[in-house]
Every structure is written in structure tokens, then in C-alpha cells.
């Protein structure tokens, strides 16, 4: 009843799912779906296929180093059972999972930080380059409202003393 990870896409393989290939040097390759198995048989590199976790880790799209990763690991040495420790661990698991999810969301937000500014710059550049397809250049000189404003004018607001309709 051990949960393994797929060799190709790093998904969790639950019992009764997937397929396993044992090479003649006794190295085991586990696959969660026939999609991963087929990609393995085609000798594809998981680090170059964009939908795998290995690709996302190499290209910095997922969080890679965090202390919450240390709680889930393969333990090759059995521990003696301790009831109190087991209860505390079971109590701590949802808390650790919540912390990990929060940190991953923060990582994603940091990665997307400069995206809005980038989109605005791209839109401005596209407008500047492509406005001649909509209006002829001679018309643009007559009607400057279709182009981006070149000069910012400061508008001064004056308080008129005669206009007080609400106070009546």
C-alpha cells in the first residue's frame, strides 16, 4: 500500500494503478498512465517535456526548496511504533499541507509579478505600430485623439464659492 511517484511525470501512483517496468539490471520504472509509459518507450527526456514536474522544476515554475518537502520522504529504515508520536504526526499533517499550499501560492504570485506591466507595454507598442492599419497617417495628424497622448497637462481645480446647492 505504498504510494509511489511516476518516473516520467512525478504524479502519485495509487495502488492498483499504472504499470511497472523492471529492466534487466533490476532498475524499476513506474508509470502512472499509458501516456507516461508511451513517452518512456519513445525515449523522451522528462526534463524536456513541458507537462512534467521535472520540467517545471528545472525551469523554475514550481517551488523547489522548502522545509515542508522534508516531511514527505522515502524512509529506508523502519521506525519503532510510538503511539504519541503517531498521533502528533497525524495531527500535524493537515497543518503542514496548508503551509505548503500557502507558500506555493506565494511563489506563483512572485513569479507573475511583472506580468501586468509587461502586458501594458506590449499593448502600447502594438497600438503605436498598428494604428496605421485602422486610420491613414494623414488622418491621424488631424485627429490626435486616436493616438497616445504625448503631453500630460495638469488640470487645476478651482473652488467656486457661488455653487452650494446642497446646503440650501
Amino acid at each position: 500500500m505504498r504510494l509511489e511517484k511516476c518516473w516520467f511525470c512525478s504524479s502519485t501512483i495509487y495502488p492498483g494503478h499504472g504499470i511497472q517496468f523492471v529492466r534487466n539490471d533490476a532498475k524499476i520504472f513506474r508509470f502512472c498512465r499509458s501516456k507516461c509509459h508511451k513517452n518512456f518507450k519513445m525515449k523522451r527526456n522528462p526534463r524536456k517535456v513541458k507537462w512534467t514536474k521535472a520540467y517545471r522544476r528545472v525551469h523554475g515554475k514550481d517551488m523547489t526548496q522548502d522545509s515542508t518537502f522534508e516531511f514527505e520522504r522515502k524512509r529506508n529504515r523502519p521506525e519503532r511504533y510510538d503511539r504519541n508520536l503517531a498521533e502528533n504526526v497525524l495531527k500535524a499533517i493537515p497543518k503542514i499541507d496548508k503551509i505548503r499550499v500557502t507558500r506555493e501560492e506565494k511563489h506563483h504570485k512572485n513569479r507573475m509579478k511583472g506580468k501586468k506591466q509587461k502586458l501594458q507595454m506590449e499593448a502600447a507598442r502594438e497600438l503605436e505600430q498598428g494604428i496605421s492599419l485602422v486610420k491613414a497617417p494623414s488622418v491621424l495628424q488631424k485627429d490626435p485623439s486616436l493616438t497616445l497622448p504625448k503631453i500630460k497637462v495638469g488640470v487645476s481645480q478651482q473652488q467656486s464659492e457661488d455653487n452650494h446647492p446642497m446646503e440650501e
Binding site: K5, P46, K53
Partner: peptide, 9 residues
Amino acid sequence: DADVAAGMG
């Protein structure tokens, strides 16, 4: 590598 990418230590 697959295990580490999946979030295991």
C-alpha cells in the same frame, strides 16, 4: 529526480 520534483525530500 522524479521524487524530488514531486515534492518529496
